[in-house]
């Protein structure tokens, strides 16, 4: 679990890892050591105050050099919200996340359709399953050029789509995508806020964390 200056959701995401039965390990943005973890989560927030572009400065943090190298060796990496923006800025995922088309910060519970279960982060879901997970962002509109969108569609790398209304103008209603090997996933919604119906809209987000744990222990 990486913490940058301005990260907000590392505590909730850490809790989600523990809920799922995993052992969370805190990683610091200025370190160059992944401490032997079996997966990395880049959580949400406003790293470096969203200065320049959301995720732009964080993508050059020392820890990200290690994350990029480890992802190249197949280490599972998940980027949530600002973490997704960071993974795109770092070049681990294609495309970019820009200002919501409505210009407003959107904060609500959002229906998503799980489009791909062929990633290490979504294997415990059913393809086509609808889940309810909070979103909260101002820069969540996924954009990429036509060739990239066609590639993502053709290779089954769109992992989540918004249903019941597109909250931010994202092309193709895209809420989350994966790398070609399905080991790097980024999404704007916050599964870590939906792990227990007592504290969130559902427990639908827990599957993200149990999926990667199943893959790690398999």
């Amino acid at each position: 679990m990486i913490t940058f200056p301005g990260t907000l959701d590392d505590v909730d995401a850490t809790r989600a890892v523990r809920y799922a039965g995993g052992e969370p390990v805190a990683l610091w943005h200025a370190d160059r050591d992944l401490r032997g973890v079996e997966a990395v989560i880049v959580p949400g927030g406003f790293s470096y105050g969203d200065y320049l572009r959301a995720g732009a400065i964080a993508s050059f943090a020392p820890i990200m050099t290690e994350v990029i190298a480890a992802a190249g060796r197949g280490l599972p990496v998940l980027g949530i919200c600002n973490g997704f923006q960071i993974l795109c800025e770092a070049g681990l995922l294609p495309g970019a996340l820009v200002r919501n088309s409505g210009l407003r910060f959107v904060c609500r519970d959002q229906r998503l359709r799980v489009e791909s279960t062929a990633t290490v982060w979504t294997a415990s879901y059913q393809e086509g399953q609808e889940i309810l997970v909070p979103i909260k962002h101002a820069d969540g509109r996924y954009v990429a050029d036509a060739a990239t969108l066609a590639e993502l569609d053709g290779e089954g790398r769109v992992v989540f789509r918004y249903t019941g209304g597109n909250p931010n103008g994202a092309l193709g209603d895209i809420a989350g995508i994966s790398s070609p090997d399905g080991r790097v996933v980024g999404l704007m919604p916050h599964p870590e806020h939906a792990i227990d119906p007592v504290y969130g809209p559902s427990a639908d987000g827990l599957g993200i964390f149990t999926s990667v744990l199943s893959a790690a222990t398999a």
Partner: peptide, 14 residues
């Protein structure tokens, strides 16, 4: 500058 094909809602608001 945002690429021409990228929707610029901030510019539109101005």
């Amino acid at each position: 500058m945002p690429k021409p094909e990228i929707l610029d809602p901030q510019g539109q608001a101005v």
